[in-house]
Amino acid sequence: MKIKILGTGCKKCKELEANVKEAVAELMINADIEKVEDIRDIMIYGVISTPALVIDEKVLSYGKVLSVKEIKEILSK
């Protein structure tokens, strides 16, 4: 699984990244987490409200910091 966090490096983006890492660790799944900070790469996904969560190239959430619980729900689908 390839997880990308889109965000230009603000506080909310860092919170989302931390939550994703925690969720992945708790579920003990094998995932590749990447932070995408370049604005041009972010825009390709059509996202304009950051932070956004992209899993296997699909935008699953944008414009909010998901909680660890919410991320776990998304990941276990």
Binding site: T8, G9, C10, K11, C13, M43, I48, S49, T50
Partner: peptide
Amino acid sequence: FCSCSAVPLFIGFVE
């Protein structure tokens, strides 16, 4: 409006 969302918003609107 947070300063971190200003840039993507601006580009998104213009685009």
